[in-house]
Design a protein around this nucleic acid. Sequence first.
DNA 1: ACTTTATTCTGCATTACGTGCATAGTTGCA
DNA 2: TGCAACTATGCACGTAATGCAGAATAAAGT
Lengths: 199, 199
Amino acid sequence: MQKLRENIVQDTTLDTRREKNKRRTRQAIRAAAIELFTKQGFADTTVEQIAAAAEISTRTFFNYFDTKEQAVSLPYGLRAEASISAHGQNDNDSWQSIEAACLTLATALEADTDERPTLIAGIRLCQREPMLRDQASAQRGRWEQLMLSSLDQTLVNRVRVNAAAGATWASLSIWAENNGSASLVQTVREALGTISPNN
Amino acid sequence: MQKLRENIVQDTTLDTRREKNKRRTRQAIRAAAIELFTKQGFADTTVEQIAAAAEISTRTFFNYFDTKEQAVSLPYGLRAEASISAHGQNDNDSWQSIEAACLTLATALEADTDERPTLIAGIRLCQREPMLRDQASAQRGRWEQLMLSSLDQTLVNRVRVNAAAGATWASLSIWAENNGSASLVQTVREALGTISPNN
DNA sequence: ACTTTATTCTGCATTACGTGCATAGTTGCA
DNA sequence: TGCAACTATGCACGTAATGCAGAATAAAGT
């Protein structure tokens, strides 16, 4: 029902010239970062190089991304909380809500065909570069936190959230490895089915 | 560029003088870091301060820990691979191996009563400080990777590993929140039971 | 078109993380 | 005791990241 743009984007997707420029610059940075990281490795790439490739100043880089790692950040957390709280979180149908959140994310990612190459390249990079892998794990952790914040913080809910996030990430990894040939949503559904609560 | 320094506890706990000094220094750094981070926050604590509190030079700090964050690193990865490969990894009893690895970790953590206060303080810190939370997530990710490396890298195995690691981490969180009153191993067992494969 | 206002970009200075290297200091061992 | 191995330290350096002030650019008003 919503149009899902970009990662940490504002709800108000203004079409003004400023917003367009910002999106364009953001994408240029991401593309430059992914290319340079892929070509010469994360550690051996400086922010200065990325900025030069994206034709901005190094200072501007940090106006767009807080850290060097985040230039390849994945669009985790995409409306996760909305999706969670939409469903009733009463007692133990929390799994449904969590599942829905994961599938919402997967659907959104799969729908955005424009960004798909960038996304896949980013995920693959995260599998190769330890620093970026850590960053991806950290993002997954923040996503878990976000989902959990809409639920009772019981052991069961924490386990379910972490497990579901882990299943989603595993699906994303496989999906990226296959260059997006298989259906992401279907894979996530299968992965979640593996660990759906059994009592 | 790449640093493979493991902060995994060696099996060979040599009792030589050097080893003792190293362990003592390591613990001093950890304690100092946890105290300072708790008191004045992660960002407002410099490595210089930690080193001073631990009575070493700042340079030596980086002989023990690769980054400032890792001063409160959790002993993830403890014998994970051994525990995994010990059990047969044939086809689909991988869950047993994974479960065993998680329980081995939990058992080891619970058994070490000396380090328990430090451990619990570290975990609680990781829940409060975003940077350290990220670090903890990254470590969990590395642990997942380690467990997975002994298995076939199928979707099912990836999901199981991630889910089990998530369950273990959730248990650790709860355990630390209760100051270690409940049994960690029992909690992990319960958490794993929630998501044990159902087909 | 021209001025005014808001937002973004950039250069400069600064702090602190992290590494390589050379050297001094410890510990282990014959 | 003397030699070998290891550990601690100081120094120099690169660079990630932040704050600030002013230039550049877009939006809005006249």
